[in-house]
Computed example of a mutant assay.
Amino acid sequence: MAKNKSKLVYSTAPDWQNRPQEQDNEAPQKQGTVYLQRVTKGRGGKTVTLVKGLAGDLKRWKKELQQVCGAGGTVKESTVEIQGDHRQKIAEYLKQKGMKSKMAGG
């Protein structure tokens, strides 16, 4: 015997309009310390700045940091990579935004 799996299509409940609407915006995440690391291994001798620990939309962060540094970049896993050694510029930019940053590695 098959179960009747009906989905509610119309509701006469008076509170259906008062339900909170789902928002596309993410809930603000608490921002911790951001780590800035300079790396050359596995990149043919070219220097890359790794930015770890950013909360929120990493693609948006990548775009902002590329504009600040005047360099290319990418997002890999939970890290933003900016071409070149731009740790100082990024640290100053994050400080202006009220965020803590630390230099990590060589």
Rank of each mutant, 00 (worst) to 15 (best):
G32F: 00
E77H: 14
G42C: 13
T49K: 00
E81Q: 11
N4I: 12
T33I: 15
K76I: 07
D85Y: 07
G70N: 02
V80F: 00
G42D: 13
I90S: 01
L8W: 00
V75P: 02
Q17M: 14
Q37N: 14
K100D: 11
W16N: 14
A71C: 05
E77V: 15
Y10W: 10
Q21C: 09
Q23A: 12
L54N: 03
Y10C: 08
P28N: 04
D24I: 13
V68D: 05
D85N: 14
Q67C: 01
P20A: 13
L8H: 02
G56W: 00
Y93L: 04
L8G: 02
K97W: 11
G70C: 04
K62I: 00
K46N: 03
K7D: 08
L8V: 08
G72V: 14
K7N: 08
Y93G: 01
L94D: 02
Q67H: 05
Q96V: 07
T12K: 11
G42L: 12
Q21I: 12
K52V: 09
V48P: 00
L94Q: 02
K100T: 13
K46C: 03
P28E: 06
N4P: 05
T74F: 12
K89S: 08
G53M: 00
K89H: 06
S78N: 15
Q67M: 05
K41D: 10
N18Q: 15
Q96K: 10
S11W: 11
P28R: 05
T74C: 13
T40S: 10
Y93W: 09
L36R: 01
G56N: 04
G73D: 04
T47E: 13
K89D: 07
G105T: 06
G44F: 03
K102G: 03
N4A: 11
Y93A: 07
